[in-house]
Amino acid sequence: MKLTKEDVKYVADLARLEFTNEEIDRYVHQLTDILEYEEQLNELDTSNVAPTAHVLPIHNVFREDVVTPSLDREKALMNAPEQDKGCFKVPKVIE
């Protein structure tokens, strides 16, 4: 699987990362290498194999619908790079 620069740019965009041209070239190479290594999985016929998303056979883990204390607002916001009026502040979002 040979990746193109466009592939790398598309993925970078999805992941909200930006790269210089050299970095993109490097990623084209490195990711292609890794994906080539991944090719070996295609040796396996898995058409009748169920995927394992969870290794443990557990299901139905629930909590009761009970309200527990929330954080003090001060604590909720204490790590915010920017805050205003009790909220997290971000650059203007145009809807």
């Binding site: 993925v11 999805l14 991944e38 999985l41 898995t46 194999v49 169920a50 995927p51 394992t52 998303a53």
Partner: peptide
């Protein structure tokens, strides 16, 4: 990339099958 549209089955799902 492995989760992106069109590649999920080839990579992520495949990897979960190999996991089995």
């Amino acid at each position: 990339y492995a989760l992106s549209s069109g590649y999920y089955d080839a990579y992520y799902k495949k990897a979960l099958q190999v996991r089995t």
